[in-house]
Design a protein around this nucleic acid. Structure first.
Lengths: 157, 157
DNA sequence: TCAAAATTGCGCATAATGCGCATATGCTGG
DNA sequence: CCAGCATATGCGCATTATGCGCAATTTTGA
């Protein structure tokens, strides 16, 4: 099995700076990190090939697209139908992520919606998938800690 | 209350292209979307001010930082201590997101870890927070649908 | 309908980028 | 201990992209 490359000090410095300002120029990054311009360029290029970075889509706020509501739908599934349920979920646009969790026949489905009615509709379409036994929806009311990765960089290198 | 701007057709076209290639040049974007270069620049600049885009950090794969494991920890909390628990959770680096869900005293805590032992340790430190009554950890075994926003763009404009 | 906000088109100076290539550095396996 | 491979560095140069200004035109909304 291929072992994935893990960030070193150089990567940490670059990523830290990019978080502060995603549009920093190669030269600015090089100075900030005390590196050569070509080194910066090599790393930045490498990130793509290695897929160390997610797609740009991860930066887009669903609210900006008109979906301000977010919810988690815990979905109990007939075990044999896991795959087909996964496919059916993928066919629902409002489903933005589906995770299979350990030791259970539950799926954790993250959805977005335009409003409360819309959410109700989406939850309904999940429940109507063949193989889904029951669902439990929890609307995200408050983000006590917003998605963050930054602090992990400090534990790198 | 200020109403948030929502993406229009122009935004949709730009975002679609940026997902395909985040490094597209302004001019390339302009051509692809049939717009003027200045328009593209204006929009791209605006995204920052409006915070329509998340920080660059949302693009970094935790695995690249050395945290290949991801888990959801459902945390039951003494209602009065919600705030202090939130702060305590924020103090744990491996905690990458905390959501307060509707109608319950549960928090949905997303964590990452270096390995199974590390996850066990992190789960323990969550459980030891004053105000946490009990926790239930679900390791993300499989992503049936990886985080995606792209398909929402088609429902825009 | 009218005024404000966006988009557009054009040009230009500056700055960034994409190479190539030779050298220095550093880590690994023999 | 040394050879060899991968990486980082330094330099230059031609090509592009960017940042800005400004005026005309279209769209949007009140």
């Amino acid at each position: 099995m291929i072992e994935r490359r893990v960030a070193d000090k150089i990567d940490a410095a670059l990523l830290r700076n990019l978080i502060a300002d995603p549009d920093m120029t190669h030269l600015a990054l090089a100075e900030a990190a005390g590196l050569a311009r070509n080194t910066v360029r090599a790393r930045l290029t490498r990130y793509k090939d290695e897929k160390s970075l997610f797609s740009f889509q991860s930066r887009i706020d669903p609210a900006f697209l008109g979906f301000p509501l977010r919810a988690y739908v815990v979905t109990r599934v007939t075990q044999r139908k896991l795959t087909s349920v996964g496919e059916a979920l993928a066919a629902i646009p409002e489903v933005i992520e589906v995770c299979g969790l350990s030791g259970i026949t539950d799926l954790l489905v993250q959805v977005v919606a335009r409003d409360a009615d819309d959410l109700y509709r989406v939850a309904g379409s999940i429940l109507s998938i063949k193989g889904v036994k029951r669902t439990s929806t929890g609307l995200v009311m408050r983000e006590l800690v917003s998605y963050r990765i930054e602090q992990l960089i400090e534990k790198t290198g």
